[in-house]
Simulated scan of single mutants.
Amino acid sequence: MTDDKSTIGQLPDFDTLANSLIEEGVLTVAPSELHGMLSGQLAAGARFDPDTLLRVVAELMDLDILNGENIKLILLELYQTTLAQLQSTEFSLQLLMPDDVHQLEQRADALGGWCSGFLSGFGLYAARHAKLSEEVTETLHDLAQIAQIAAESEAAGDEDEADLMEVYEYVRMAALLVFTECNPEPDDTDEKQPLLH
């Protein structure tokens, strides 16, 4: 099914993942936050084989195990596509967000959730990086600020729409910056270090 991905694919559909999470009984983690967590772990240098990935995600969502085949396939696709986008030289990272038919507040909230997910995912593996550059440290601080502000935003208008797009673009580039610093060119670096506790 995924053989035909010579180019970098699209992320799974937001609503499809949301419905799959509900079917699994997950009510505490939204799709954007989950994608942020995964992106944060990848940015910190974590890599997972499929079984480890599903176990790690189940833990993040306070589940003993993932039951549905559908959710497993979506999560594997989410992981592979996100890693490919982060590694691309074309800055093609997308953030998993509700589409434009959703209210601006919902999208702002999802962006805040993505940022806090990224920070907690990165935090799980941050100890691998004894010293981060000042630029990356400031970027992580900015993401924490955005997570706060987005959670408190309630207004909706054209100007806010443009502002949200600007912040989205900043967050996207911020994630790429962190990834680039913490993942030097993959020459002979060990790609598979599941790092479980």
Rank of each mutant, 00 (worst) to 15 (best):
M165H: 05
L93P: 07
L195K: 04
Q193P: 02
M173Y: 14
M173T: 14
M61K: 04
A58E: 05
T139I: 01
S116P: 04
I65L: 12
Q103A: 14
S88I: 07
K5E: 08
L73S: 09
T28F: 04
F179H: 14
F91W: 02
E159I: 11
E23R: 15
L164M: 14
I74V: 14
A58L: 06
Y125G: 00
D187L: 12
N70K: 12
R47A: 09
I71G: 01
M61G: 02
N70C: 04
T52C: 01
Y168Q: 12
R55K: 14
A144I: 04
N183G: 01
E169T: 15
A147C: 02
I22Q: 06
D187Q: 14
A58Y: 01
N70L: 12
R47Q: 09
M61F: 05
G25Y: 05
L76N: 05
E77H: 10
F14N: 04
L66I: 12
D160S: 15
S116E: 04
L27G: 03
L27S: 14
L38A: 02
A151K: 05
K72D: 11
E105W: 11
L42C: 06
L11M: 10
R128H: 00
F14I: 00
T180A: 15
K72H: 15
D15C: 07
P186V: 13
G123T: 03
L96V: 06
R55G: 09
Q80S: 15
L164K: 07
E161P: 07
D4I: 12
G40W: 10
F48R: 00
R55D: 13
A147H: 04
F14S: 06
T189M: 13
D188N: 13
L34E: 00
M97F: 06
Q85A: 07
D188W: 05
D13R: 06
Y168W: 07
A84M: 07
L195G: 14
V178I: 08
D3H: 07
M37E: 08
A156I: 08
L38V: 13
G36Y: 00
L66M: 04
F118V: 05
E134C: 01
L42Y: 06
L140D: 01
M97I: 09
S88C: 08
Q10K: 14
I74M: 04
M165S: 11
E159Y: 13
P31C: 00
L75T: 03
E159C: 09
L96H: 01
P31M: 03
A155C: 10
A156W: 10
E181M: 04
E185R: 12
V167N: 00
G117Y: 12
R107V: 02
A84D: 11
A151H: 08
G117T: 11
D160H: 08
P98A: 13
G68Q: 15
L143Y: 00
T82C: 02
D49E: 09
M165I: 02
R55M: 11
F14C: 05
L124F: 08
A155Y: 13
E135L: 14
Y168C: 05
S6P: 01
K5V: 05
D142C: 11
E185F: 12
E181N: 06
A18F: 15
L104Y: 15
E59G: 02
